[in-house]
Amino acid sequence: MRRETEIERLYDGHAQPLFAFLLNFTRDEADTRDLLQEIFIKLAREPELLAGVRDERAFLIRLAHNEAIDLMRRRGTRDRTKESFAAEANSPFAPVRDPDEKFFRDELAVALAELPEEQRAVVHLKLWEELTFEEIAAALDIPPNTAASRYRYGLDKLRDRLRPLHEEMKKAE
């Protein structure tokens, strides 16, 4: 049987969370694929990058975050306006049949897209990667207090945006 290569191991271990993080950040599936490709090519070309790295996931999230920021800078502000329109089409959430649940996920996708990128990154890592503020801080190269405050601001905005819907669904439950 063929031995798994290092790149295959890294892909199988980390591609899914990186995909979700990048899709939430870029809101564009093609950009997400390009960024993932760049990340894995970089890892293949420079295998020494991971030498001595304790937490591969945190390192890869940091790499992905830097690549995504570079992409955003290259694009400039011109394309940012289309983010909210594309939010639904490029939702980071799995499709669902239940109409209420689908509506909630779509609204959540739009609400997330409206957050500033730095808050969105922290909210994503806290809620869906279940990282601590220390881990988020290490991954995004920011102080833990900044990570915590960005999360609070982001969550407050989501709560305000989704409150009516959340209340309604709570009553229905």
Partner: peptide
């Protein structure tokens, strides 16, 4: 409650 609800939303698969 909102936090719990949000974190339960499954993310898209690659």
């Amino acid at each position: 409650q909102l936090e719990r609800r949000l974190s339960r939303q499954p993310l898209r698969q690659i």
